[in-house]
Structure formats: C-alpha cells, structure tokens
Amino acid sequence: MSVLVDEDTRVVVQGITGGEGKFHARQMMEYGTNVVAGAVPGKGGQDVDGVPVYDTVDQAVEEEDADTSVIFVPPAFAGDAIFEALDTDLDLAVAITEGIPTQDMAKVNKRLTETDTRLIGPNCPGLITPGESKLGILPGNIFESGNVGLVSRSGTLTYQVVDSLTQRGIGQTTAIGIGGDPIIGTSFIDALELFENDPETEAIVMCGEIGGEDEEQAAAFIDEHVDTPVAGFIAGRTAPPGKRMGHAGAIVSGSGTGTAESKINALNDAGVPVGDTPEEVADHIEEFL
C-alpha cells in the first residue's frame, strides 16, 4: 500500500521538452513511473523517448488518460501551468519549480478551494512510492519499500533521513516532499491524514523547518487525530531572525514566530519525539517498529 502514487499512476509531464523536464522524465521512466504524455504549448506532435507531447494538458488527458501531472515549468510560467493542471481535473499535480512569485501562489491557493485536484509543492522534490513510481526529482536508489511514511518541507534533508532509515533496513511506504515555499498545496496535516489512513504505514517521519506555523498546527492535529507513532525533526535551530535560509518559507520573523524552539515544543507536547540529529530520528523510528 501507499498514498497518492502507485504503479498505476498515469503521468503527464508539463515542460517535458525543457532541460530539467526531459532529464527527470527519463529518470522517472527508468525508475518505473508510467509517464504517458508530455504537455508543452507549441510542441504538440513531438515526442520524448517515445512519449507523445501535446500542446495542452487537456489533450494529454483526452488522448492518454493521464491522471497526474508533474510540473517542470520555469517560475514565470509555473503559476499558469498549475492552473492548467487544476482546471483539467487531474487527481494530482506536483509542482517541482522553485521561485514562483508568492502572489501567483495566492491565486493558485484560491483555485485549490474550487477543485478536487490535490497539489503538492511547489518548490519540492516530489514524492515516491519505492519500487512502484516516483513523481519528481528524488534519487530513487536510496529508497526501499517498507512501512514508514515520510513527509518533509525539504528535499535533501529527506534524502538524509531516508538514507539513515534504509541503511538500517527500514523501508518506506511513500515519501512526500511538500515544499519550502510560504504557500503550498498539500500541508503536513494533509499528508499526516493520508498516512494515518494507510494501513501499511506503521510509523511516520515528519521533517519540518523554521518559518510559519504549519508544524505547530500539525502537532495539534497529531495530538487529536493521529494514532500512528510520529518522529520529528526540525531544521534551523541556529537560524538568526529576519534572514531567509534558502527556502522562501524558511524565515524566523522579527516578532519571533516560526522559531525551531516553538515547533519542537509543540511536537513534544503532542508526544512526538524530535531528534537532535537525523540519526536520532531513525533511532526513534526503529523503537516504534
């Protein structure tokens, strides 16, 4: 079992003819992802390694029965590309693009209330169900199929924690990178709910970072609604206030909201142990299983 993505997922890659899009479409196919189409305006009729390219997402759905989009479109056009995915009534849209203007994302956020399509990202590595399918840019070889669900705001930090798990022989049901922007589609709470309802997921890793209040809200949700054991990690304990630490969303505001301390305390209060190091997170998961 897994959440959101499995071997039957039919993928259209928006931006498949660009450098990133082409490279990662190939990587996804090598991993076993069922990439059925590409969508790039003006490039309809071409193909990438035998995958047909259409001018619109709508055509890709019409002709190839795509149900999920992975978006590798440059930031200036990515807001529009996400709207196209949402308005085509796909099940899932995964936006990898980093650097989308926040006001574009506020409009996307509004549209999300009017559609059934789930958005993951933007500014995220995507998601993977090991051994079945990956959507995005995660390095497939470090993952192993198993019983731990993982949700994270950061890509490479996810790899670090997954590596620790896999090296101990602990595999994963699905790993979801929700992205490092201030406004994102799928939140920690959404992902936790999915894992809680997945019978195969026996433990959950949640990797947060400074900025915003999503981790605090997730902690409250865990307290009320999650029986599956959760182990946490929070990056950015040493970050100074007012400085953006790489991710647009990773900033402790001048008034002191978004600190690592507040997030760690909230998680601890909800009974979630928070590792001081990524290895300690793996220790906690090992104890749960």
């Binding site: 950061s154 490479t156 930090l157 670090q160 040493t238």
Partner: peptide, 26 residues
Amino acid sequence: VRLEGNTGIIGNGAGLVMTTLDLVDY
C-alpha cells in the same frame, strides 16, 4: 547568510544546510 562562528559550511538544499549548521552547534 553570514553568521558569527568559525566553522564554514557548504551544502546542497536549504533544509540539509540548515541541519548542518544545527549539527555544528550541537
């Protein structure tokens, strides 16, 4: 982002670089 310490840090990906900073402190 410049900080005040003496251990320089280079990495890839914001979350992992922040984690490396935190570990230096730890």
